[in-house]
Design a protein around this nucleic acid. Sequence first.
DNA 1: CTTCCTCCTCAAATCGATTCGACAGGCTCG
DNA 2: CGAGCCTGTCGAATCGATTTGAGGAGGAAG
Lengths: 335, 335
Amino acid sequence: MSTASLAFSGAGPIAGTTRERVLAAATELGYSGPNPLGRQLRQGRSGIVGVVVGDALRRSFRDPVSVQVLDGLVGALGELGLGVLLIPGSNDPSEPPVDPLVLSAAMDVAVLMWGGTLHDPVLDALRRRNTPLVVVEGQQLDGVAAVGIEDRSGTTLAVRHLLELGHTRIAVVTLPFDRTRGEGPATDERIDGIVYEVTRRRLGGVTDAGVVPTVVYETPASLVEHGAAAGRAILSGPDRPTAIVAQSDLLASGVVLAARELGLSVPGDVSVAGFDGLDLPWLAPDVLTSVAQPLAEKGAAVGAQVAELLAGGTPERVVLPVALRIGTTTGPVPV
Amino acid sequence: MSTASLAFSGAGPIAGTTRERVLAAATELGYSGPNPLGRQLRQGRSGIVGVVVGDALRRSFRDPVSVQVLDGLVGALGELGLGVLLIPGSNDPSEPPVDPLVLSAAMDVAVLMWGGTLHDPVLDALRRRNTPLVVVEGQQLDGVAAVGIEDRSGTTLAVRHLLELGHTRIAVVTLPFDRTRGEGPATDERIDGIVYEVTRRRLGGVTDAGVVPTVVYETPASLVEHGAAAGRAILSGPDRPTAIVAQSDLLASGVVLAARELGLSVPGDVSVAGFDGLDLPWLAPDVLTSVAQPLAEKGAAVGAQVAELLAGGTPERVVLPVALRIGTTTGPVPV
DNA sequence: CTTCCTCCTCAAATCGATTCGACAGGCTCG
DNA sequence: CGAGCCTGTCGAATCGATTTGAGGAGGAAG
């Protein structure tokens, strides 16, 4: 019945008495409101945004960065009446490269939280489905909306800060290079083959400051324990640097812990800088020197891109600003 | 066309040549596969499970416990071809108590991750919609599937462990009592008014061991900083206890940090026990004494309940076992 | 050669809400 | 008093895939 629809939506012209009559009848018949599936089919949109998270949820969500961006995104989409469908990225090489949801789930827009690389199976699948896309932290791709931050220049800021403090022997602890998730000092060839754009850009920021790192240490994920492992390796090896730049705060905090463990003073013996600007209460009393990025705003920016895509527009790439936040973990080079 | 459907699904009897012909025509016409909305309407199911997370995502996801359970759940549901729709719980009292998604999103089953209490607006709304429900860590409710753990007896195990070490003056740091999220030592009346079942059960486990806490300290959320605040208050006040039991590992680790900050030795001056059995690399070299719960299994158990509900069954309440894991943060009472 | 059977193809009904268009009734204004 | 308008109600078409059941073509057996 068409009148019933009006009664529930409340949209069209309908007399108060009729509406009440319909609602009463509905309760009597045990009808619990309109079926969303019918509405969705008719309107041609599901009200759902598929969000492809990095790899295993477990790992993604242990990263406060993803979580805070996701939080901002969910908030922004909630305002628009849109829901977030969680889609796991490919977990490990033995599994199929794309989750079945990517192929068959109903979604009006898809968001790639980890910056799909060129020739990415998930990205390709979504394009074949003609799903509008927003990519976070990825590279520029035609016809794909994107949100990023000033990765490269932000890193340069941090490195310049260390240079001003007199450091010259600087090591870098990086985010993963590619899906293989290697670990350890990277060769030049390996560096040339970096697939993940974030890693590449932030590394480029070091070069931009005119610094050649004593070592580029690759980690398999942005987690404290991997940062600690890297820190141990770098600080206990020969040829110890006086400063370490990590590509995330979680990695940087691991480095700080490793230094403490080795009896080294931070920043007396070694300075440490991170990236993200997180609040890390358990690092107290230290406060990490870090390049702060606006996480919730990033989520909100993605939400705005989604809205524009749904309105039929073609959003321009958004690049959000970052700021160097100087904490207690960087200081003058030891004499 | 009906044959087209068969061609894409591959299910029915169809000749190979015909299928190829259909697929070719589809590509030519720019048809990108069947529209999920049509299928969903026809089949009467969306393949989506709505997961209502605690409160703000930000807070929920900073809690590794929620994250790991969610990870297990997503994995289990993925096997069943089901997707997870993220639904924020009510964030703060000023906002409407239920997210619009609860009312209008398409979902075959809903999961309440935080144990809906009686008279909970979200729970009521979902029941009015006749949505099958699974409640995690909630109380028993008729017609609602539930998954829980041996909260109460697990806590008793930890307290007995402390008793055996000779402790008699034991303080408790708890999870939130209700949505108001108070903070500080709780009065008896306030304790009687606890709304969140988890908090109540774990507190009951202390009583079961025959212990009357020197103080029951309420925190607004299971986060390191709140644990640290509680630890500072309890340890720097008069009448210092020799042991502290926290209702989560995050809280417990905050207490350990506070003790270190105050120059107290753990477990020399004060013993600390937690709950959850998390891996906390940044607490090194300490390993928290804790009641370990099977987090991924919990998610998988919820997945199984969902499957049974979808098959038309009425799953029985599942209670998963816990185990006391003794670490380095508990020791004999100081002399 | 006829009949029956099997395998495939296709037309039509169905899921449930939205929405356009038509119509009826009451009202106002000329 | 009649024409036109406005409000409220209802019938019918539509979204797109699934699925049932009928029918046709081809092969095999009697």
